[in-house]
């Protein structure tokens, strides 16, 4: 113990900082599916690093308490304490948002932009990089993931508590769904 404290002092670290490492150990378990620092390379898996703390905390708690439908995450978060969820939300919110801009055809982008200005811009910003406080950034988020998520909002078989998002998603024309997803997915900034 003395040796540990000495080492901490030598490295200029406080005990509090050392304790913080536990959240990194926990956060690292998320990397397997969401990438190091929450930067995903899997098309159907969202990047989560740099998303708003409130958004991350809300969805994890809603999954945990069965207020929001998920297929895999709802099982995973049930094993976490509320404190761990808060810490994970704070941790990933502090990471840098790294967009993964995916190229798309110009006509699809134009169609997407028009659908976005009508249905999404109000909360997410026209490129998805300027969200409301409880909404995620989605510029350069994976289009495939966003399409699947929109399906959850539109399908009616999923419990999705955000009324405005649900309504906006359901107002969209079917053909606009992939276009909007591809448009946001193509945005760098």
């Amino acid at each position: 113990m003395t040796k540990n404290l000495l080492a901490l002092a030598l490295l200029g670290l406080s005990a509090a900082a050392a304790a913080r490492d536990d959240i990194e150990v926990l956060a690292r378990t998320c990397n397997g599916c969401h990438g190091v620092g929450g930067v995903s390379v899997g098309l159907s898996m969202p990047s989560i690093g740099g998303l708003p703390q409130k958004y991350l905390k809300n969805i994890m708690k809603q999954w945990k308490y069965d207020e929001r439908s998920a297929i895999t995450m709802n099982r995973i978060v049930k094993g976490l304490s509320d404190d761990e969820i808060d810490a994970l939300a704070a941790y990933f919110a502090k990471q840098r948002w790294v967009p993964s801009p995916q190229p798309a055809a110009a006509d699809l982008l134009a169609k997407g932009r028009s659908a976005v200005s009508e249905n999404c811009e109000d909360c997410h910003g026209i490129t998805g990089s300027d969200p409301d406080v409880d909404a995620p950034r989605i510029n350069g988020q994976w289009a495939k993931y966003m399409e699947l998520e929109l399906l959850k909002y539109r399908d009616g078989k999923f419990k999705m508590p955000h009324r405005k998002m649900k309504k906006s998603a359901q107002d969209m024309k079917s053909a606009d769904v992939p276009a909007a997803a591809r448009y946001f997915g193509a945005q760098d900034k």
């Binding site: 599916c33 990438g35 899997g42 159907s44 898996m45 297929i71 994976w142 699947l148 399906l151």
Partner: peptide, 16 residues
């Protein structure tokens, strides 16, 4: 959904 997630999961796991 989970069939789609499988592909994203593996890509991330391989990269991790």
């Amino acid at each position: 959904m989970e069939a789609e997630y499988a592909d994203g999961w593996l890509r991330n796991l391989m990269t991790d």
